[in-house]
Design a protein around this nucleic acid. Sequence first.
DNA 1: ATATCATTTAGAGTTGACTCGAAGTCAAGT
DNA 2: ACTTGACTTCGAGTCAACTCTAAATGATAT
Lengths: 152, 152
Amino acid sequence: MNYTISEIAEKMGLTAHTLRYYDKEGLLPFIDRSDSGIRLFQEKDLEWLAVINCLKETGMPVKEIKNFIDLCMEGNKTFKKRLNLFLIQKKKVEDQITVLNKYMEKIDYKIWYYETALSKGIEAANKGSKCCKDIKVGWVKNCGNSKNKKKQ
Amino acid sequence: MNYTISEIAEKMGLTAHTLRYYDKEGLLPFIDRSDSGIRLFQEKDLEWLAVINCLKETGMPVKEIKNFIDLCMEGNKTFKKRLNLFLIQKKKVEDQITVLNKYMEKIDYKIWYYETALSKGIEAANKGSKCCKDIKVGWVKNCGNSKNKKKQ
DNA sequence: ATATCATTTAGAGTTGACTCGAAGTCAAGT
DNA sequence: ACTTGACTTCGAGTCAACTCTAAATGATAT
């Protein structure tokens, strides 16, 4: 059974415009067409879209996704290259998660700072921090006048 | 002691252009200027930049960062709003990490798939998957042999 | 003091990823 | 047959976030 571009757009949380754009960019060379040129999406295409979506959501640009699709179209002889591509992508996602966790610490410090300042006053917040020394100096106070420092 | 825009750009891993762009967008209202109009960056500004960087790297658009900076400039009476902003941002980062972990599973499956196909053949990979049923149908199989299509 | 290099502004250009509009074609319902 | 609404392509427009250029001024080294 076939689906229209709108049905697929709906299922994938995209617009039909976006799907046509992806097609134009060479991301969807596998979709069939009717005699009159209308795209006939099938169940299997949802798998393709899921992988494209995975790569896109983990930060791969459209052009690189196209390269991957091109590899797929070349057949089994590109397995090694594709494996490598996913190994690289895995590393990138791991790095992204690491970075996000790092920033999460900063955000947690800010939350702690503001909560302390709100409940006990600014002085307590400025004195109390034992964690996150790198951003210890309240930059509340510093909205204009500090002495401290250092960050990479 | 003061730093030039280039020194700060270097330290922050940005370009001087980008810093001027941020300034133009209202992200750096706190930096001093010399009589002749040259920006005089101080240690304290590195803290500001670190927080701006944190918000930017966790996906906050420049315009929203500006709103936050504006709140800071209004002084202590905006503490509650700022706390709230960071609580929202924390939630967003948690969500991002969750999503990335989800995609990581898909990537791991792909890696497993290609490794199995490479070491034991495609059939084994197509039969063996117990996990990730949603992408179980080998799209390896589906590569290349779909009837055809058109393309712009 | 002169050359060289950095800084300033305003504004234009680039890139990536859509997003939309026009004009035409196709398919389903009455 | 006709209307309506979804589909098609092509190309232009939008938006965010830079990125660069030009022309002028500032700072530094010889």
